[in-house]
């Protein structure tokens, strides 16, 4: 069984690098780290990740929520938000994009793994239901 391909979207490269390291440590394959929303949309279209970890606050004109919304409309890829934001407004905006889970910063490897696995499982079930 091939490794799960993860697309990490994080505007801070070093943080992205840490996530990438932690994900690899957990057994996932990280093909790319996108820095902006548009970059994420492009990389999602070219790398076909199994799952996307999306930071909500991104540099540039597009937020992670907006990028996730676009990707969701184009591709059937589960998306998990990475966020330190826990305010009501952000949560509400994020909910509207029907995410598969949240990973709150600072990261905890166990949480990351559980959340990713649950998201993939949920997605798999949805796919099966659709078929």
């Amino acid at each position: 069984m091939s490794k799960i391909k993860v697309l990490v979207v994080e505007d801070e490269n070093i943080v992205g690098f840490e996530i990438k390291k932690r994900l690899k440590k957990l057994g996932y394959s990280v093909h790319a780290v996108a820095k902006t929303g548009q970059d994420a949309i492009n990389k999602a279209a070219t790398t076909y990740p199994d799952i996307i970890l999306m930071d909500i606050m991104l540099k540039g004109d597009m937020t992670g929520i907006e990028a996730a919304d676009t990707i969701r409309q184009k591709h059937n890829i589960p998306i998990i938000y990475l966020t330190a934001y826990s305010d009501e407004e952000t949560i509400l905006r994020a909910k509207e994009t029907n995410p598969y889970g949240y990973i709150l910063k600072p990261f905890k490897e166990e949480d990351m793994k559980i959340t990713i696995e649950m998201a993939l499982n949920k997605h798999k079930k949805e796919m099966q239901e659709t078929q």
């Binding site: 801070e12 070093i14 943080v15 690098f17 840490e18 390291k21 932690r22 330190a84 910063k105 600072p106």
Partner: peptide, 10 residues
Amino acid sequence: LQVISSMLYL
């Protein structure tokens, strides 16, 4: 600070 934290982890 999160970046610093990441760097310390790395």
